[in-house]
Amino acid sequence: MTIAKRLKSHLESQGVSYETVSHPRTATASETAEAAHIPGDRLAKSVAIHLEDGHVLAVVPSSHRVDLSALQGLLDRRLGLASETEVKEIFDDCDVGAAPPVGAAYGVPVVMDESLRGLDRVWFEGGDHRTLVSVAGADFDRLMKEARTGAFGHRT
Rank of each mutant, 00 (worst) to 15 (best):
H50L: 01
R42H: 15
S115N: 08
T2I: 02
A82D: 11
L71N: 03
V60K: 01
E125D: 14
S17C: 10
A98I: 08
D95Y: 02
A36F: 07
V102Q: 11
V47E: 00
K88C: 09
T20Q: 04
L51E: 10
A99H: 03
A44R: 04
P39M: 07
G54T: 13
A33V: 00
D67L: 05
G54Y: 10
P39E: 09
G127A: 06
S69M: 09
R25T: 15
L71C: 08
P100L: 15
R148T: 06
A58K: 03
S115Q: 14
M144N: 04
H55Q: 10
P101V: 05
D120K: 12
G137T: 10
D141W: 00
S9P: 00
A58L: 06
R78L: 08
A44H: 07
R117Y: 03
H23S: 02
D120W: 01
L119M: 14
T156D: 09
P61N: 11
L51S: 10
L75R: 03
E34G: 00
P24A: 03
H10S: 04
D67P: 11
P101N: 06
V87L: 09
E34D: 08
V16G: 02
A58D: 07
A147I: 02
E146L: 04
V16A: 07
P39I: 06
A36I: 03
Q14L: 06
T156K: 05
V110K: 04
A27D: 10
S115V: 15
K5L: 08
S83D: 08
H23K: 11
A27G: 05
H55W: 05
G54D: 08
G97V: 03
H129G: 08
R117A: 14
L57Q: 03
K5D: 10
S46A: 15
D76E: 13
I3G: 02
R130F: 12
T131D: 07
F124T: 11
G137I: 12
G15R: 01
L11H: 07
G127M: 09
S9Y: 01
V135D: 05
G150Q: 09
G127F: 08
E86K: 07
G54L: 12
A27F: 05
I49G: 02
K5S: 11
K88T: 08
H129Y: 12
G118R: 05
